[in-house]
Amino acid sequence: SIVTKIISIVQERQNMDDGAPVKTRDIADAAGLSIYQVRLYLEQLHDVGVLEKVNAGKGVPGLWRLL
């Protein structure tokens, strides 16, 4: 499923980069989806406690990390 793919992308990127959070844009590119589509999935995963959003604010790139 797309959700499983997104989780594995975040996991893979974090492992490659010493646990650093992953940008929404990088996840979207790797999943082959638009940034808006991916954001909806990321928000859902956040709501159920799978991911945390590391930063927030208007015009700030979203950074995500697995919990």
Rank of each mutant, 00 (worst) to 15 (best):
A28I: 02
Q37R: 10
K53T: 03
Q44I: 12
R25Y: 06
V60P: 10
Q14S: 09
G59T: 06
I2P: 03
V48N: 12
E12I: 09
T4F: 12
T24A: 05
V50A: 04
R39E: 14
A28Y: 02
Q37V: 14
I6T: 00
S8E: 10
V54K: 02
D17L: 15
V50G: 00
Q11F: 10
L63Q: 10
V48P: 00
G57E: 09
I2M: 13
A30Q: 10
L42I: 02
D29S: 11
L42C: 07
R39Q: 13
R65P: 01
N15D: 09
R13E: 04
Q11Y: 12
H46C: 13
A20M: 09
L67P: 14
G32W: 03
H46N: 07
Y41G: 02
H46L: 11
K5A: 08
G49P: 05
P21R: 02
V60R: 14
S1K: 10
T24K: 01
D47G: 09
I2H: 05
L51V: 09
Y41V: 12
Y36R: 14
L51N: 02
V10M: 15
R13N: 03
V38I: 09
I7N: 00
I9F: 14
P61S: 12
I2E: 04
W64C: 03
L33G: 01
H46I: 08
R13Y: 11
H46T: 13
V3E: 06
G62A: 15
Y41T: 04
M16V: 08
Y41E: 02
Q14T: 07
R13K: 11
I27D: 02
L67V: 14
N55A: 10
V22K: 01
R65K: 09
K23D: 09
G49M: 03
T24W: 02
S34K: 06
G57R: 07
G32A: 08
I6P: 00
V50C: 07
T24F: 02
L33D: 01
D17P: 06
W64Y: 02
N55S: 12
D17A: 15
R65T: 07
I35W: 08
Q11E: 08
E12Y: 12
R39V: 14
V38A: 14
I6M: 03
K5Y: 08
W64H: 01
M16H: 11
D26E: 08
A56Q: 12
P21T: 05
S1Y: 10
I35T: 07
W64R: 01
Q37K: 11
V38Q: 00
Y41C: 04
G19R: 06
T24Q: 03
K23F: 05
Y41S: 02
H46P: 02
E43N: 10
L42F: 01
W64G: 00
L45E: 00
W64I: 00
V54W: 03
G32V: 02
V38L: 05
R25K: 14
K53R: 11
V22G: 01
K23H: 09
S8C: 14
L67T: 15
A28V: 03
D18A: 10
N55E: 09
V48Y: 11
Q44Y: 15
G19Y: 15
L51C: 02
G32C: 06
V38T: 14
G59E: 07
R25C: 08
Q44N: 07
V48H: 11
G49R: 04
P21V: 06
G57V: 06
D47R: 15
K58V: 11
P21A: 15
Q14K: 02
Y41W: 09
N15K: 12
D26A: 14
V3A: 09
N15V: 09
I7P: 01
E12K: 09
A56C: 12
V10C: 05
S34C: 06
G57S: 06
P21K: 04
K58A: 13
R39T: 15
S34P: 13
G57T: 07
A20V: 07
P61V: 10
K53Q: 06
E52S: 06
P61L: 11
V38P: 00
L67G: 11
G59I: 04
D26N: 03
I9K: 01
A30T: 07
P61D: 15
D47E: 14
K5C: 10
S8W: 12
L67C: 13
L42G: 00
R25F: 06
S34G: 07
L63S: 10
V22Q: 04
A28K: 01
D18S: 14
A28M: 03
R39H: 08
T4Q: 14
G59A: 06
G57N: 07
E52P: 01
L67N: 13
M16P: 03
M16R: 13
D18F: 12
Q11N: 09
A28H: 15
M16L: 12
V48Q: 14
Q37P: 01
S8N: 12
L40R: 13
S34D: 10
T24N: 02
D29A: 12
I2Q: 05
T4S: 14
D29P: 01
Q37L: 13
I6W: 04
W64N: 01
V10D: 00
H46E: 10
I2W: 13
G59Q: 06
L40H: 10
N55D: 13
D18I: 07
A20I: 07
E43F: 06
K23I: 03
V54S: 03
K5D: 04
Q44S: 08
K53S: 04
V54M: 05
N55Q: 10
V3F: 14
M16Q: 12
Q44A: 14
L66V: 11
I2R: 04
A30N: 05
R25V: 11
Q14R: 02
I27S: 02
S34F: 12
I9L: 05
V10P: 00
W64P: 06
G57Q: 07
L63V: 05
G32I: 02
L45F: 01
Y36M: 11
E12Q: 11
D17Q: 15
I6N: 04
G62Q: 14
